[in-house]
């Protein structure tokens, strides 16, 4: 059964490391939905977030293969873990006219989307949120007419967790 999994790969910030990760996944024929990589607060460390749509067995192999890379410090499949803050970002360009503009702006308000540009026949919005929130927003604004959108793919951070002894530890 194929499922979407979000995987965070913490790697050494070496030249070409993002190409390595993407290359490894494509070489093995895995289905990558999105990849987002950027440096972190530590200049030696780079984090890559992947959303992969694959079977359980393939996910296990993906995690193992990623771990095997010399540059990989840690791989975490956060898909079923509750203690992660997961976000995605989107920019959308929507058709709008004088008649439906008010309705659209109500939705924008409810979803806490942010208008960046407003024109007589279209509006450009940005929004951050969970994948579910973004998916839902897209569903709701589709009737207006989506001209274009660009999504970042998910990225995540571990929340604080308290262990049984009351110690604070990071999940990731």
């Amino acid at each position: 059964m194929v499922e979407k999994h979000t995987i965070i790969v913490t790697v050494v910030n070496s030249a070409g490391v993002l190409a390595r990760i993407s290359g490894l996944l494509s070489q093995r024929g895995y289905n990558i939905e999105s990849v987002i990589g950027a440096p972190t607060e530590d200049p030696n460390i780079y984090k890559i977030s992947l959303v992969v749509e694959e079977t359980e067995e393939h996910i296990e192999q993906i995690v193992k293969q990623l771990n095997k890379l010399v540059d990989t410090i840690r791989v975490t499949d956060i898909s079923h873990k509750g203690n992660y803050i997961v976000r995605e970002y989107i920019i959308l360009k929507l058709d709008v006219n004088a008649k439906n503009r008010t309705d659209l702006f109500q939705l924008i308000h409810i979803f806490k989307a942010n208008p960046i540009d407003v024109a007589p026949d279209h509006v450009i919005l940005e929004m951050a949120g969970t994948r579910r929130k973004i998916d839902r927003f897209i569903e709701m604004v589709r009737p207006f007419g989506i001209r274009e959108y660009v999504r970042s793919g998910e990225f995540a951070m571990a929340e604080y967790q308290t262990s049984k002894k009351g110690e604070i530890k990071n999940g990731d």
């Binding site: 296990e60 192999q61 193992k64 293969q65 771990n67 095997k68």
Partner: peptide, 8 residues
């Protein structure tokens, strides 16, 4: 020695 081989 290679964990990715186990169960592959």
């Amino acid at each position: 020695v290679d964990p990715s081989e186990i169960g592959k």
